[in-house]
């Protein structure tokens, strides 16, 4: 499996990662090698095998629909990069 530089650019965009042009080639090589390793999976026929999503095949536990969390907005916003009047600030999205 060979991943080209253009494909790394596409994946990086999907992953919301800004990758320096200088690093693209080394990522392409690394990703190709990792996918070669992963390709070993094809050696085994898995027709009819159920995918395993949990070690005990447990199902998601549900809780009662009631409020359990207390309001800690101030504590949580104190660690944010930029807030104002209880809101998180980001660059303007709509002109």
């Amino acid at each position: 499996m060979s991943i080209e530089v253009d494909e790394v650019k596409k994946i990086a965009k999907l992953a919301a990662l800004n990758v320096d042009d200088a690093d693209l080639q080394s990522y392409a090589t690394n990703l190709s090698n990792i996918l070669d390793l992963v390709a070993q999976m094809d050696a085994v026929d898995t027709t009819g095998v159920t995918p395993m999503s949990h070690p005990f095949d447990a199902v998601q536990r549900l809780r009662e629909d009631k409020v359990t969390e207390v309001d800690r907005r101030e504590a949580f916003q104190k660690i944010a990069p930029n807030t104002e009047d209880g809101l998180y600030l980001v660059p303007k999205v709509i002109e």
Partner: peptide, 11 residues
């Protein structure tokens, strides 16, 4: 999905 199936076999 393939990996999750193999995971079952390993388990």
């Amino acid at each position: 999905l393939k990996a999750q199936k193999l995971r079952h076999l390993i388990s």
